[in-house]
Structure formats: C-alpha cells, structure tokens
Simulated scan of single mutants.
Amino acid sequence: MPRTPPSLWRAALPVLATLALTGCSSDASHADASSSSVPGSLNSPKDTEPKGTEKHEKSGKPRSAVSPTHVSIPSIGVNSSLMRLGLNEDGTVQVPPAEQGMTAGWYTGGAAPGERGAAVLIGHNDTRFGRAVFHDLKKIGKGADIAIRNDRGAEIHFRVTGTETVSKKAFPTKRVYGATNERALRLITCDGAFDAQGHPVDNLIVYAARS
C-alpha cells in the first residue's frame, strides 16, 4: 500500500481484473497504513459482483444476513476473531490495522462462509509489531481443516483443496473473487521474495471447499 507498512497490503484490481495485496515489508521502520492499492489500479473486487453491492462494501455492511465471527485452523495454530472489511472510498480493499495484525478479516463484499459463492478472508503475514495471524499460512496442507463460526453460533468446516503463490502483478481476481456455485473459501496473505523496497512480490492464496 502507499506508505507501505510492514506486511500490510493494499488490495485493488488493476485494469485486467487482477487483485494483488501489496505493501508488505520486511523493514519494521516503515510507517503503517490501513489500505493500499496497486499503482494504476482502476477496478476493485466489486467488478466481479452483482450490481448494487458497492454501498455495502464501502460501509463494511455485509451483503449476507449471517456474518462470520471466528476462524480456526488447528494444523497451523490459527485462532482468530474476524473483523469486517469493506472498500475504501478509492475502491481499495480494507485490511486489518497493523496493530491488530493477529486478527484476520472477512471481505463483506463477497459471500459469507458456508453460502454459495466465494468467501474471502484476509490476514497479515507480519507487521511492524511482529508476526501476524497468517504468518504460517504457507505451511498449510491439502485437506487441512478450517473452521468458521458465525454470529448464529453455527460452526462450518472447510477442507483445503490447494494453495497458489502468485505475482502481485498477475493476481487471479476472477478465480478468487468471481461468482461460483460452490461454497468456497479463500484465504489471502503476502508471500515470496522481497523487492528493492523490502516488500514481498507475491501473494499466497489458499483455496478451500465446504466439508
């Protein structure tokens, strides 16, 4: 993200419908920001969704009547509440504040976990405060269990079907955010080598389906 904080990405879609989480940094001296965008980005995840959802995304108000409140991934030690993430006024995706790096977020412009469609969770790898909630996401294995609890007390389980490391310049937006009849879950964080400014050049995407 502009003002590139450690392990904080700015998620936005470039013209060719790609969305990368950028701005992660290995340098703890960088200032923190709450959102980011890829230079030259014109689109946002709302471009993959039905018309009329923009006001809900920008306010963080979920499109669904059910909201996820907690995520647990026993195999890698993740146990986090979930905050709501919408869109900023400039169309960039909100991300958890650096000082709440151990808390993951749910993108409210997509489906709620367990509903038909793509539900997307975003979490930091590291921030200037240290390791964050998705620090060990790269260790997750195929078949791993992901449990999501919602505000109605139900717990929904997903199984990891695969992982993908992609360049932030070629983020598969439609594959991650696009419409699907499946009850799908995606988890996103930063990954890869660092560029000259100390920011990871890749994103790690975990794909999961309802058990």
Rank of each mutant, 00 (worst) to 15 (best):
E89I: 02
K61P: 01
T53A: 07
H56N: 13
G109L: 01
T48S: 08
L87N: 06
S72A: 10
K46M: 12
V71I: 15
Y107K: 02
G77H: 10
S81R: 00
G91D: 02
A65S: 12
E49P: 00
P68M: 05
P68I: 03
Q94R: 15
D47R: 06
Q94W: 05
P39K: 06
V95H: 04
P62D: 04
N79I: 00
R63H: 10
N79H: 10
P50Q: 11
W106Y: 09
P74C: 07
T92E: 12
S59A: 14
P97I: 06
P96L: 04
S41D: 09
P62E: 02
S44F: 05
D47E: 09
P39N: 05
W106L: 00
E99M: 07
T108Y: 00
Q100E: 14
V66K: 15
D47Q: 08
K55W: 15
L85F: 14
V38H: 04
S72C: 03
L82N: 02
S75A: 15
K58Y: 04
S64E: 05
T48W: 15
S37C: 08
T48N: 05
P97K: 14
K51D: 10
T92R: 10
V38F: 11
D90Y: 08
I73T: 00
T108F: 01
M102E: 11
V93A: 10
K55M: 12
E57I: 09
A104W: 07
M102H: 05
S37R: 15
L85R: 14
R84L: 12
N79V: 00
E57A: 14
L85G: 02
K51L: 09
G91S: 03
P68Y: 01
G86R: 04
S80M: 05
D47F: 10
M83Y: 09
H70W: 13
R84H: 13
S75D: 13
P96Y: 02
P97S: 13
A104N: 03
P97L: 13
G77A: 06
K51F: 11
L42M: 13
P68S: 04
G60V: 14
S59V: 05
W106H: 01
N79K: 08
E89L: 02
I73N: 00
P97V: 09
P50T: 14
N79L: 04
V71T: 01
D90L: 11
G86K: 03
S67F: 07
K51H: 06
P39Q: 06
L42D: 05
S59L: 12
N79R: 08
S41M: 03
H70T: 04
G101Y: 00
V95F: 07
